[in-house]
Design a protein around this nucleic acid. Sequence first.
DNA 1: GCGACAG
DNA 2: ATCTTGTCGC
Length: 220
Amino acid sequence: MRVRTPRTVAEAEAIQDELRPLLDLTGPGPERPATVAGVDVAYDGDRLAAAVAVLDGTTLEVLEEVTVTGRTAFDYVPGLLAFRELPALLDALERLSLVPELVVCDGYGLAHPRRFGLACHLGVLTGLPSIGVGKTAFVGSHAEPGPARGSQADLVLDGEVVGRVLRTRDGVKPVFVSVGHRVDLDTACRNVLGLTPAHRLPETTRVSDRLSRAALSGAR
DNA sequence: GCGACAG
DNA sequence: ATCTTGTCGC
């Protein structure tokens, strides 16, 4: 599948509003996924490298890795990240031999100005269960979660819960979790905790991050 | 009107 | 995202 590349911000927002109804927020989604994919993109000017890493959901062992390189076709605009990263990510996902039971994205899903962040967009276009894990605040307000790993606080936007601020390590800055497609928020958070046995960020994003950077430098 | 703003 | 040294802690 391909991403429609908009020419303007207005066009991009219209596409998000058009795809938003296709979201499946029914859940619950995979509780103990056998395979989980992490996706990430690295940049160097207008060059980019997208990476997908599929890990065993239990042992977190890397089962498969795919990278693709290309050029940016859309500048970064807050709220429109998907149009910048999705073309290359979908390209990489299509080259996978394994079909992951869950995809973990770098960024946000439902916690988005129009409720259609990168994780939602990727999920709708691929049909795969997906969630978003952001490292910094984007939208919504929240209380400070407790200091212990596992502590959570609702992320609220316009009066509705759109995500959760989750502490994955004792005393370490929390991550922002929101659902993408075919997964509910509690299941998303449980999966994130299962993917963070030793670090703040999920192993899936750590592996795909390293992979995309390596592919970027190796492709020159 | 003026900032803030995933990666 | 990316630009970047030393430094604290497991």
